[in-house]
Every structure is written in C-alpha cells, then in structure tokens.
Amino acid sequence: MCESVGFTNVRTYIASGNVVFDSKLAEASVKSRLERCLKAYAGKPVGVAVRTSAELAQILAANPFKSAPANRTVAIFLDAPPPADALAHASGQRDEEMALGTREIYVHYNNGMADTKLKIPAAKTGTARNMNTVAKLVEMANE
C-alpha cells in the first residue's frame, strides 16, 4: 500500500499498523494518501498518525516516565497538540500517571493496561504505542 502511493524504503514493525518509509511529501499529503488507501481497503475511514524520524526520537527523549517500564508507558499519538486541560477531563484514573507532550499524551500504567478504567476524551481519536515500540521505530527510521 505504501509503495503504491510512492513511498520508498518501506518497512513494517509488528502487525499493528507501524510503518516506516521514506517520502519527500509533507505530512498532510502523506496522511491523506494513506487514509485514502486505507478507506478503499477497509471500506471505512481509518485514521493515520504520521511522525518524522526526528519527531519520534523527540517523543522518546521527552518521555516523562523514563524510569518506568517501557512496556507500561505509552505515547498516545494525536493529530494536534492536546488541549492544556486534557488531563483534567480524564476519568477513571487510579494509579496511572499522565503528562502532555507536543502532539502526544503520555500515560504510565503502573499496574498495566489490562484492567485500567482510564478514559482521556482528548485521546479518543489517537493511537497509542508503548515506549518499546517507539524505540524500535526510531531505530528502524535511522537505519
């Protein structure tokens, strides 16, 4: 799919929609091309989050929960900066820790995500990746 719209050096990582590729197009063009292809394939809209290799590296570096296990800390990727009051509107918080990023919301799930009741309305249309995945994508993007 990525190659069909002109992207090169395409590589995927695990079966959860992680794709690394080269493109000279602007983010909006990359996003719209992928979303059109995915809609044609799936028969319904599928959102896409796009980040450059430098942005992924910055997301990893800015992780406010670096001392926490990487598999229990996620970056929820958003299309735009989260509202300043995004965390105030979260509900169901127990022992989770949250922080705002540039176009991400970071969440550390102290006891894992399996039983969480946390809901963050500002993250409704986002997609989450744990820090192990972000680190692997940074590595792949720099190859």
Score class of each variant (00 low, 15 high):
57 A>T: 10
94 R>K: 15
69 P>E: 04
31 K>T: 11
38 L>F: 10
128 A>K: 09
139 E>H: 11
125 T>P: 01
119 K>D: 12
136 K>S: 07
90 A>S: 13
31 K>N: 07
65 F>Y: 10
28 A>P: 05
42 A>W: 09
49 A>H: 13
112 G>Q: 06
91 S>Y: 03
97 E>D: 10
118 L>T: 05
131 M>T: 01
77 F>E: 02
138 V>Y: 00
108 H>T: 03
102 T>Q: 14
70 A>K: 07
41 Y>H: 15
125 T>Y: 13
81 P>H: 11
59 I>F: 04
56 L>Q: 04
104 E>A: 05
62 A>G: 02
40 A>V: 11
132 N>P: 02
104 E>W: 04
90 A>H: 05
41 Y>N: 12
142 N>Q: 14
97 E>I: 01
80 A>Y: 12
137 L>M: 13
95 D>S: 14
109 Y>A: 09
93 Q>N: 11
110 N>F: 11
34 L>A: 10
111 N>L: 14
61 A>P: 01
28 A>L: 10
71 N>A: 11
78 L>P: 09
52 T>I: 09
32 S>I: 10
97 E>K: 15
58 Q>W: 03
89 H>V: 09
51 R>N: 07
55 E>A: 08
128 A>N: 12
49 A>K: 15
43 G>K: 08
61 A>Q: 12
135 A>I: 00
60 L>E: 14
102 T>S: 15
43 G>E: 07
126 G>L: 06
72 R>Y: 10
122 A>S: 08
44 K>P: 04
77 F>R: 00
95 D>W: 04
64 P>C: 02
69 P>I: 00
131 M>G: 06
114 A>C: 01
30 V>R: 00
88 A>Y: 00
82 P>G: 04
67 S>A: 12
98 M>R: 06
125 T>K: 15
95 D>L: 11
108 H>Y: 13
42 A>G: 09
83 P>K: 12
123 A>P: 03
63 N>I: 04
54 A>R: 12
128 A>H: 11
101 G>Q: 04
97 E>S: 14
112 G>N: 09
76 I>H: 00
99 A>N: 00
110 N>H: 15
73 T>L: 01
111 N>T: 15
137 L>S: 05
70 A>Q: 09
123 A>T: 06
115 D>E: 14
46 V>H: 01
105 I>R: 01
106 Y>T: 07
96 E>A: 03
57 A>P: 02
59 I>T: 07
124 K>L: 12
67 S>T: 15
125 T>N: 15
140 M>C: 00
115 D>Q: 13
129 R>C: 05
122 A>L: 02
30 V>M: 07
